[in-house]
Each structure stands twice: as C-alpha cells, then as structure tokens.
Simulated scan of single mutants.
Amino acid sequence: MDVEAVVAAHREEWARLDELGRKRRLTGTEAEEMLDLYQRAASHLSLVQSTSADPVLTQYLSTIIARARVKSSRDFRADPGAFARFFLETFPAICYRAWRWWAGVGVAFVVLTALVAWWTATHPGFVSSVLSPEEISQLTRHDFEDYYSSYAAQDFAFRVWTNNAWVAALCITLGALGFPIPLLLWSNIVNTGVSAGLMASDDRLSLFFGLILPHGMLELTSIFVAAGIGLRGFWSWIEPGPRSRADAFAAEMRTAFTAAMGLVAVLALCGFIEAFVTPSGLPTPVRLLIGFTAWCSFIAYVVILGRRAVAAGVTGDVDARLREDELVAG
C-alpha cells in the first residue's frame, strides 16, 4: 500500500475529525459529520494496520479516533432531549411500523379466546371432569373477583407490572425464534377463554368484562405490541429484503429491545389501573370508561405521533453512535 497516497487522499478528513474531536460543543450537523468521519477513519486505520507498519500514522489515527469516540459518547449522554425524543418519536415510530403485526396478533388472540370461551361454556361435561362443582362455584363467585383485591393496591400494582413486563420481554426476546411467541400467547388465550366461559355459564359474564376490560384493553394491547414486534424481528431473518439477513435481523432486534423500554412505561400504567381502578368502588361504566380512554389514548399516540415520526424518517433503531463500529470504504 502507498502510505503517502493514502495520507494525501484523506489528510483533510482526518484533520477535520481531529478538529471536531477537540471542540467543546458540537451542533447536530457537526455531530453527524464527526460520526461519518469517525467511521471512515476507523476503516482507514484498519487498512493501515493490515497493510503497513507505519507506527506514526497508526498512532495518529488511533488518537483522533479515540478522541472522537469519547467526544461522541459524552455528547450523546449529555443530550437533554433524548428522553423526550424517545417517547415522542422513537417509541411511537417502532409501534407504528409494526402495527400490522401486532394488530394481527390482537385479532387472532381475541378470536381464539372467544372460541375457547364458547367451547368451555357449551361443554360443561369437560369442565366438570377437571373441576368439581364446588371448585367452579368458588372460582366464579369468589376467586375471580377477589383476585383484584387480595393484595394492598401498591403491592398488587407492582406485581402486575413486573409480571406483564416479564411476558412482554419474553415476547420480544423470543422473537429470534418465532414459534415460542404463539405458544406463550396460547397459555394466556386458554386462561382467559376458560375463565370467560366459566363466568358465562354461571351468568356472570358482565362481571367478567367489568373486571377485566378496564385494565385489560391496554394491558393486552401492550402484549400484542411486544409479540408483533418480536415476530417482525423473526420475519426479518426469513425475508430480509435488500439487506443481508444479519443486518436486517440486527436492526429489527435493536428496535425491539428499544421498544421494550417504552412498553415498561405503558405496562406501569396498566398496573396502576388494575390495582387502583379495577377493584375500586366506582360504577362499572366509569371503570370501563377509564380503561377505554387509556386504550384510545395509546392508539392515538401510536397512530398520530408514530405516523409523523415515520414520515420524518425515524426508524426506531438505536443511535448510530451506540452501534458497533462500521467499516466504511474510504
């Protein structure tokens, strides 16, 4: 390799990177410029190290790259608008981009749950072979309703939040494999459907909906979102489009784990509703209205802010400064 030719071709880029790395503050445009120059310089350093033994050039490039890395990381952590951008752009963009996936999951969940409930209500012989009449009566007349007031509200909210966050995390994490997600959702379908069928057979279906819908509309939607995003990540491995499978899968799973942080906040709200609204003494229509308002607010949040963010080019992928170094041809 002709070291002098490489130096002549890229001297100005390196000098500019050195200049930006030494600046006290960077504008947004300068930060993007420094990131691009940093990636280019990293590829140049790799080339120099593999084809030349010039210690001076190697040390120079290593120094300006290290300075740029530190500068970029410091500026990113100090960004006061990152939190707001996450909830106003990044998170809704991820949810909006995957809406067909999680809407499909939601429709399938509701349909299958209704079928399980219908089958349970119309086949009492099967239910009685598993549970005694006393156990069924205990479940429908006491246990189902008492569940929501069996703990102190704040403790119950925390239990619900952590449990749902765990389910959502499993849906996202298992997106790499795909098939565990339907299996995970099926257990919830069976539990919900059987409970609904038993309550219907005891003429207490209105109580069932009065207790499960205030928090369940938003809670289940959050789980659907997690499952849909996880399945989208799995599909990116099967059908990567113009990208390589590795690049497509990495990008989708980065956005998936980013979405998990937003879902934690949504599920915290679900836990609050389930602990403080569902078992409260408020009239059932009021509790349903609160749950429906929370659900509609989330859907509007995703559609309005998510569509706007996607139109502006937001993908939900993590900031390039937090990704693995990329080698860019110089």
Rank of each mutant, 00 (worst) to 15 (best):
V127N: 11
A31C: 04
L184F: 14
V116R: 03
P80V: 05
A248M: 07
L177R: 12
L269A: 07
R100C: 01
A294E: 02
R254W: 02
I64F: 03
T120D: 05
A169V: 01
G210D: 08
L47I: 13
L35Q: 09
G313N: 04
E135W: 10
A200K: 09
T173C: 11
A226V: 06
W237Q: 14
A312R: 15
A268P: 03
A9M: 15
E33V: 02
I290S: 14
L183S: 07
P80E: 01
G210A: 08
D146R: 15
A329H: 11
T113P: 11
D54E: 14
I273P: 12
E4T: 10
I65L: 02
A42L: 12
A226E: 05
Q59S: 14
A227H: 06
G271P: 13
T293Y: 03
G178S: 12
M261L: 14
E252Q: 14
L174I: 05
T278S: 11
Y147H: 10
A268M: 13
C171T: 03
V111K: 06
V277E: 12
Y148E: 01
W166I: 00
I172R: 04
C296T: 05
I273Y: 02
L269K: 03
G21P: 08
S129A: 15
D146L: 15
D75Q: 09
F276V: 02
L57H: 07
H142G: 06
V314W: 04
F292A: 13
G316R: 03
I229F: 10
S150Q: 13
I65H: 01
A68D: 00
L263Y: 08
A200N: 13
L322E: 08
E219S: 11
V160A: 08
L269W: 01
L112E: 02
G28P: 11
R16T: 00
F109P: 04
P279W: 04
A329K: 12
T90Q: 10
A103K: 05
M253V: 02
F83M: 10
W186I: 14
S236L: 06
L282I: 00
R141K: 15
S43H: 11
F257S: 00
L35I: 09
P92D: 10
Q49T: 08
V303Y: 11
A265E: 14
A66E: 11
G233C: 10
P279V: 02
F76H: 12
R40F: 04
R307H: 11
I136D: 06
F234K: 10
F208L: 02
P92W: 07
Y151W: 12
A15G: 08
G271H: 09
G262R: 06
R243V: 00
G104F: 06
P242W: 00
